[in-house]
């Protein structure tokens, strides 16, 4: 089932400059694996060593954080929009 993946600026160089990519996948984990296989430069940036979500990546499906759903097991449907986000945080001290 084709879903649209929005690619953030920091990952664009790894996906040939594309701002969005269409991927056939039934779950978030499979989608991230498919992206890594299609774009080898993404290897290690989308999944941790055990196939889960890495610390420095947030994944949203239709505006919902997959960590509040079923994480890598979150199901996907035709037309879903997946956003990959860098977590932005810091502070003065």
């Amino acid at each position: 089932m084709p879903v649209t993946v929005r690619i953030p600026l920091p990952l664009r160089q790894a996906v040939e400059g594309l701002s969005e990519v269409t991927v056939d996948a039934a779950q978030v984990g499979a989608l991230l694996q498919a992206l890594e296989e299609r774009f080898p430069a993404l290897a290690g940036r989308l999944r941790d060593g055990s196939g889960g979500l890495p610390r420095f990546l947030r994944v949203y499906v239709n505006g919902q954080d997959v960590q509040l759903l079923r994480a890598a097991g979150t199901p996907l449907a035709d037309g879903d929009v997946v956003a990959l986000l860098p977590p932005l945080a810091g502070g003065a001290t």
Binding site: D65, L85, P87, A89, A92
Partner: peptide
């Protein structure tokens, strides 16, 4: 002295 940008 900290921020975390709301991902939503």
């Amino acid at each position: 002295d900290r921020f975390e940008l709301d991902p939503v």
